[in-house]
Design a protein around this nucleic acid. Structure first.
Lengths: 145, 145
DNA sequence: AAAAAGACTATAGAAGTAGTAGACTTTATT
DNA sequence: AATAAAGTCTACTACTTCTATAGTCTTTTT
């Protein structure tokens, strides 16, 4: 399951994406608008900023805005910042590889091979879906289930 | 991330699959062989048994064996027993659907639509991979990464 | 100087995961 | 019939991670 942190992060990026062109948005406003606990959102935005996705400005008239085009921010990258690995087992992770505790022989592990397939299938979606895509889909009612 | 419970469950099913034809396997032996804490494994096997995947026999000479063909036990079903939903958000789950707390309008939610795609991609692998497939892949060294 | 914003660190509470304990039931063997 | 060998079931504890909150500091504008 996605953490709330990740959901909040995506919602914040979407909101900031829609706000592009306008003056930066303050944390408080974003929090209210998206129904996210203010101080929690603060941390999340900081993470995203430190990862280069957001630009922030202090002082009166300051706030947050996107530091990239919405079309260049992919969900896979966001998830990795907020939730860590995308793979379901550490030994199948591309960016957070770690040996599984329970695994003696990784090369012949049937479980690992299967979950590498799962990872690839998941990434095929998440690494190709950008914030712009998410925004575009919001108004597209063609997909029902 | 997969819970240890799920990993243990898969390993146990694989071991029991390989043991098919022989007398049932005792929990203690299975636990030792697969390096799974005995009492924890006990619970897991019970769950799998109550879900119809295992047959158990009490008393001397008793133990556990598969109640289905290894080819008829799919990872998706196991995961659902041990970890619950496969989707990354409750509102995108087929078997464990629940409304997301943060979501006002589900129909137009771009996040939901994307994670339905992820769910489908994941299921395409997990609902088609059986314990028999996992066993088969163990000896197949053709897949390296 | 004051006010408006974000930056950063620490901590607390809640929930979920992993593992342990123990008493009970069924079955086979002697 | 008694004993031993298994699985059954429920409760509980420890640990970790997630969610959220608090407070102090820094920067920028007016």
């Amino acid at each position: 399951m996605l953490s709330k942190k990740t959901k909040y992060a995506i919602k914040a990026l979407v909101a900031l994406g829609k706000n592009a062109g306008n003056p930066p948005m303050q944390i408080v406003r974003l929090a209210e608008q998206e129904m996210i606990p203010r101080k929690f959102l603060e941390q999340i935005l900081l993470d995203m900023r430190n990862a280069g996705y957001l630009y922030s400005k202090k002082g009166a008239g300051g706030g947050y805005s996107l530091n990239k085009e919405p079309g260049d921010i992919y969900l896979a990258d966001i998830l990795r910042i907020t939730d860590g690995p995308i793979a379901m087992v550490p030994c199948a992770s591309l960016k957070f590889y770690r040996k599984c505790d329970e695994c003696h022989d990784e090369v012949t592990c049937g479980i690992r091979k299967t979950f590498i397939d799962v990872r690839d299938a998941t990434l095929k979606v998440l690494a190709q879906t950008s914030i712009a895509d998410v925004i575009a889909r919001e108004t597209d009612e063609s997909i029902v289930n």
